[in-house]
Design a protein around this nucleic acid. Structure first.
Lengths: 258, 258
DNA sequence: TTGACAGCGTTCGCAAAGCGAACATTGTTG
DNA sequence: CAACAATGTTCGCTTTGCGAACGCTGTCAA
């Protein structure tokens, strides 16, 4: 009861339960109650009630002492995707450009100090590396998508956003100095696109361009490919393709109210 | 406290909050508090607390008096998709077969008396009609996917499942007699595939085959296309393609523990 | 073998969280 | 503009759910 008193309008039990649902991510597909409690920073008994409630609601499956998400959570995302007509207005555009560029195209935004993938084109010869999908989180600091997103924020917010995340060394090439990363972000802001090389995955170059209009919540499109023989030619071709894709998404006002 | 006493292990506030989150679907992208309360069958004050909590947690956005889902809900689905390696084990297979068949391929399962789309390939020339995505719900009774799913259940369960849903007449061809629909389901079970014609969308034929092994929770793959000049030839080609796709998914054990 | 221990899931009395009738506020109709 | 209808918000009473405490199970060292 200090300064931040509990708001009578907020249901704390509900908030805690949501935290339980949110701890399930790529690294930990199934967990015990104690693990959930630890990850969500809650008492074991509290986590237990939340988990059991989720089981009853059908969002969680209990298998012995392990708990894991059920496909029903997809329905929650489905509500969002349909509300924003992703199936009609976003996915076809991504697919078409992906086809023309012969590369997988991803749409992303910021979420809690990470990059949240909103949609992904699907094309045959995609060099599948991690197998990210819509809803996946990827790092902010060492990906072209992340830096382009930061570039869409006012400078001080970008610095703040970067400060919130930790900076693991994914590869030898990963920049670890926040100032150096902010330099690259500034560069991306100035030139209207972002390139990264080998900072997240060795040998892979990332490309990203903004989709949202200045002032809106930043949305970006990007792609990644193994570094080829003529990096400059590749970059020019792919960035041109991404710019066309981004322009078309803007035109369709597909991402204006995110 | 009559017979159905409240379980001490279940957090009712949390369950009610989840119900609020779940009312957002394709038909109602944004709602007022009163509408949410009505749809979730809760008191307005209760719905309000749930909604405000969701706003604070970042899953809902408040815009005047309208509330709508934010992209963060995608992260919940992302947890499931990554846990089950959809990006690596399912999506590529669907994409490859879709490419070969030159048609959009969908993976689906049962959820609350409807068909829940789990994943969807995307090809260029897809005749985009509704713009469904992963997480979308489609009707159970009048789609080939739905009937094939019912065929994967024991007969009495299929009948029960069908009884739960209402049977709107989407088109003139929609079967409205439950017994007639169960006949088709039985047929699908017997022959190992399901065809429907114009029952959901006029002029569109749907094709579906089972993916899950007998006894598991039913999972099916399917596709749909405008009825062409040689329906039999189309059916043979598409069903063959779907069977190959389904076999490969089974082989990869991609959907065994759903 | 056994005692001590660490980690897990589960219980229960008490504090506080949230339910919903009642109220305030805003839009709508005759 | 008065009467109404529908929405958003408050507050006292009750129910819910918090977390210390418990029992159980597997693990390690003496």
């Amino acid at each position: 009861m200090t300064a931040a008193d509990q708001d009578r309008n907020i249901s704390s039990s509900f908030a805690k339960g949501l935290a339980v649902l949110a701890v399930f991510d790529a690294e930990t597909p199934s967990m015990t109650l104690a693990e959930i409690a630890r990850r969500s920073g809650q008492d074991r008994a509290t986590a237990r009630r939340g988990a059991l409630t989720l089981v009853q609601a059908g969002y969680l499956r209990q298998d012995g002492r392990m708990l894991s998400l059920t496909p029903r959570v997809l329905a929650l995302a489905g509500g969002f995707l349909q509300a924003n007509q992703f199936g009609r207005r976003v996915q076809p555009v991504l697919n078409r450009h992906a086809r023309q560029m012969q590369i997988e195209v991803t749409l992303a935004m910021l979420d809690q100090g990470r990059v949240l993938l909103l949609a992904q084109s699907t094309v045959e010869h995609g060099h599948v590396t991690y197998g990210f999908t819509a809803g996946s989180h990827i790092p902010l600091a060492h990906t072209s998508l992340g830096r382009m997103l930061l570039a869409g924020l006012p400078e001080e917010e970008a610095a703040a956003g970067l400060a919130e995340t930790d900076l693991p060394r994914h590869t030898e090439a990963s920049l670890t100095d926040p100032a150096a990363i902010l330099d690259r972000v500034g560069e991306a802001r100035a030139q209207g696109y972002c390139l990264t090389d080998s900072e997240f995955e060795a040998g892979i170059t990332g490309y990203a361009v903004p989709v949202s209009r200045p002032g809106q919540t930043p949305i970006v499109a990007g792609c990644s490919a193994p570094r080829g023989q003529q990096p400059e030619a590749d970059a020019e071709r792919l960035l041109r393709g991404l710019q066309l894709c981004a322009a078309e998404l803007r035109q369709a006002e597909a991402v204006d109210h995110l």
